[in-house]
Amino acid sequence: MSWRTIDRRTAAEQDLGPGLNDAVKEKIRSFFPRYPTKRAVLLPALHIAQDALGYISLRAMRELAELLELPPSAVLDVVTFYTHFWTHSRGRKTIVLCRSLTCELMGGGRVREGLEQRLGIGEHETTPDGQWSYMTEECLAACEHAPCLLINEKLHKGVQAEDLDRILVDPENDHLDMPRSTLFDAPAETKP
């Protein structure tokens, strides 16, 4: 047994984080006709909320629960199950590094070390300037281009540790140059 007890009964106002604005809520509501239950909109709603806020704040969880008529804990339940969702704020750009077997065999471990060294952060942390956050994912399904990493929505293929300097300074490194459907916006630039 642990000697430490953490308080889950209360949440201070400053810890609730940002909430969802009306436009975001309206966008979530536009998904209602797609599914017979409101609960099924939760995953699209979380995507939309994370695109808008950068992460899923406590306040957003409460608002989503209200919007979708769910107990608030159900939102927490789903948010924490999926690795894509962050429960704390992150940088303007998030690097998702693949660490599947192929990527590790092809030098992914060195890329990871290089990345952590250059950014000076560990997984799920954000650089002090609020530019970068970083996480790993088990497989990005781009194994023929191993090792690979995602910067926001853009996939970088065949990345070796030496390429990192070039990629990190490229201002277009997260720009996905393609016509996109408007259903899910590109992740908004968030303030750390």
Partner: peptide, 17 residues
């Protein structure tokens, strides 16, 4: 240690938690 949900102290590695 369980991380604080709203962000300041999150342990490295793994999933969101």
């Amino acid at each position: 240690e369980l991380p604080v949900l709203h962000g300041r102290a999150v342990q490295p590695a793994g999933g969101t938690f």
